[in-house]
Amino acid sequence: MAKSNEKKRDFFWLSYSDLMTSLFFVMLVLFVLVYTMQNKLISDLGEKGRELDRIKEIEKTINNIDTTYFKYDKVNKKHILNMHFLFPSGSYNISQIYPDKRVDLIKAGKVIKELILKYPVEDNIKYLIVVEGQASKDGWKGNEDLSFHRAQSLTWLWKLNNIGLDKLQNCEIIIAGSGEKGIPRTKPDIKTANQRFLITIVPKIGQMKK
C-alpha cells in the first residue's frame, strides 16, 4: 500500500512538472509573440509619424507657393491663379483670347512643376493636382462644360511649353469644371468675379496607380 501511494505521488509530481514545463513554454511563446508584435507596432507608428511629418513639411511648402502667381485660400485649401479674366460668352481658348497673359500663365505652370520636382521620385512622394475652371453667372447655359474646357485649355498651354504635369512620374492631374458652382466663389457674384482657375495640390506618400 505504501509503495502504491509513493508511485501515485511520483506520478503526480511528474505530471505537475510536465504541466509547468508546458505552461512555461506557452508563456515564453506568448511573450515572444507579444514582444515581436509590440516592436512591429512601434516601428509602424514611427514610420507613420515620419510620413506625417513629411506630408506637413510638403504642405507647408505648397501653401507658401509663389504669391506672384497664386493666392492661397486656407479655408478651402486651394490656390487661386492670381490673374483676372473676362472670357467672351461661349469662349474658352485661353491662348487666343489672352496672348498678353501667356508668359505669366507659363511661369505659373513652371512654379507648380518645380514644386513637384523638388522631391525626388525615390522619396515616394506623389501629387494629385486638380486644375479647376470656374465661370461667372453671365447667363450662358453651358457654363459647366465651358469652365472644363477653359481648364483644359490651360493644361494644353502648359503641355505645349514643356510643362506637361501628367508626364511626371510622381504626379496625377485632373481637369475639372465647376461652372457657376464650386468653392470658393467671390461675392458679389458679378459678371467678371469668378472667371478664374483654382488649383488644388494634394501630396501623398505611397503608390498612385494611373
Rank of each mutant, 00 (worst) to 15 (best):
A2F: 04
E6L: 06
K7T: 15
W13V: 10
F25P: 07
V26M: 14
V26Q: 14
M27S: 05
M27R: 09
M27P: 00
L30I: 08
V32I: 14
T36M: 10
M37T: 08
L41P: 08
R50F: 11
R54H: 10
R54I: 06
R54C: 12
K56W: 01
K60S: 14
N63V: 11
I65R: 08
T68Q: 14
D73I: 03
D73K: 01
K74H: 12
K78L: 13
M83Q: 12
F87E: 06
S89F: 11
S89V: 14
S89P: 13
Q96R: 10
I97M: 05
P99E: 00
R102D: 07
R102I: 05
D104P: 08
L115S: 01
L115Q: 00
P120L: 12
V121K: 10
V121M: 08
N124F: 11
I125G: 09
V131P: 07
Q134E: 04
K137E: 15
G139Y: 07
W140P: 10
G142K: 06
N143S: 15
F148R: 04
F148H: 11
A151L: 02
Q152C: 09
L154P: 02
K159Y: 07
N162Q: 02
I163Y: 00
G164T: 04
K167G: 10
I175D: 01
E180G: 13
K181P: 00
G182D: 00
G182L: 01
K191F: 05
T192V: 07
Q195I: 10
F197R: 05
L198G: 09
I201Y: 01
G206A: 09
G206C: 06
Q207C: 04
Q207Y: 02
M208R: 05
M208W: 08
